[in-house]
Design a protein around this nucleic acid. Structure first.
Lengths: 243, 243
DNA sequence: AAGTGGTCTAGACCACTAT
DNA sequence: TAGTGGTCTAGACCACTTC
């Protein structure tokens, strides 16, 4: 059935993805683009668009002169580092029912590193939001978000404390978070962090130290996240350059 | 000047990238696609191809109905996690002169985890290659590669020990490494690792535990890498899904 | 209403890989 | 040499944002 929205390209992509996941292609070889175009009744351009998106996701590889092939090992990955946006979504993809605990919502002076990355004066205040994400009631991710008070006040946020930060900023502050730049930092959890994540003090963890930018590339939020390494391990695809 | 190779698309991309880096666009706004196409004497499709690649790199964002914009904060990143292929290249991008120390090339029985990820029998042998990457003579990255001996023997590799592993596999073994799947693991360096990286025992580090796959999606190499966190910090762009 | 990026077509030719 | 993916064109129309 041909309709608009989702686009033809997205429909073709979904069709191919389903056949890929159900092992519908012999020996992991995807038919020639011209054949797919004829079979699906769309132009080769549309097929190429859809294949390009699947390649971008790592699901397939294309080799000029040779063909298009399914990358089976890639399909088995659960938590892909490149695809994180909401932590609740991550935990859901991971196969569990996520929930959120709001531990702290309060206003205070920005510390030096936060003031630096958010371009604030030394005496500015920030709203600090601390949350714990759980999967099936086990704590997995601890996050601390810091947002300048000239963007939002604690009274405003407390009415929406269960809302993800990026969603709140978009709907209540007119600041669409467009991307985060994240540093990956190894840490040993201190007493308080370890307590909240339910592990021993000194446990090794990966943390993200990151800044969120809005649609105008202005820094809006400074976030730090700590992960239970034993419950959630992030994976990454490293590909040849120019792919 | 219009020539083939590099493709028109790549030439347009390079042209735009140069103007982006030299702040050649007012207020970070890139001209409309139709205008660029007319100015450069190419079709709008070619311009869109080039813009799509820049968007994929994170350098720009496109918003339907609104325009195309430069993501200035992204341009300042040195070591991007998504773009790692060769560690020598990483160190070079990082602004230093890289060099390599081959610490060990020897054959031995595969340990359990290596046998598991490479699909080997319990009694198989692997070639173990341990290397240290330095920038301006400071050790920064320590890697251990394990390759099944039915693919390569130590005698073969020793003649090429300065060659990157992925290059050796391609040129000498006919196995093109197409991608790695990497786990990100926080560790405390043991005595030997710390000594080689020139830090104290117990220092925190990020490590990659990864498997390299060839053009037929067969596992070919099991690698573990340790990074001097104080000298090289990987950064990551987290974007909204569907971008 | 005007202007922007997004989708889609049909067709031509090129570059590379297999055999 | 046949078959594959890669590049490129010209043109039409749609969806969304901005004014």
């Amino acid at each position: 059935m041909i309709t608009r929205n989702p686009s033809l390209t997205e429909q073709v992509k979904a069709n191919l993805k389903e056949r890929i996941l159900n092992d519908g292609f012999e020996e992991g070889r995807i038919p020639p683009e011209a054949e797919l175009a004829a079979e699906l009744g769309v132009s080769r351009t549309t097929v190429r668009d859809a294949l390009g998106r699947l390649e971008h996701e790592g699901a397939i590889s294309r080799r000029q002169g040779s063909g298009t092939f399914v990358n089976k090992p890639v399909l088995q990955i659960k938590s892909r580092l490149e695809e994180i946006w909401s932590y609740e979504q991550v935990l859901e993809d991971h196969g569990y029912t996520p929930s959120v605990d709001v531990l702290r919502v309060e206003t205070g002076p920005a510390d030096n590193s936060t003031a630096a990355v958010l371009d604030l004066d030394g005496d500015s205040n920030v709203l600090v939001i601390e949350k714990l994400f759980l999967e099936d009631d086990r704590p997995v991710v601890l996050t601390v978000n810091r947002i300048p008070t000239d963007i939002v006040t604690d009274a405003e946020y407390e009415r929406h404390s269960a809302t993800p930060v990026y969603e709140f900023l978009e709907e209540q502050c007119g600041r669409t978070l467009s991307y985060y730049l994240s540093d990956i930092v190894p840490v040993q959890l201190d007493d308080e962090q370890a307590g909240r994540l339910g592990v021993e003090q000194g446990t090794l963890a990966v943390s993200f130290d990151e800044v969120g930018y809005d649609q105008d590339n202005a820094p809006v939020v400074h976030a730090t996240s700590y992960f239970r390494d034993d419950l959630l391990r992030f994976r990454l695809i490293r590909r040849r350059p120019g792919t």
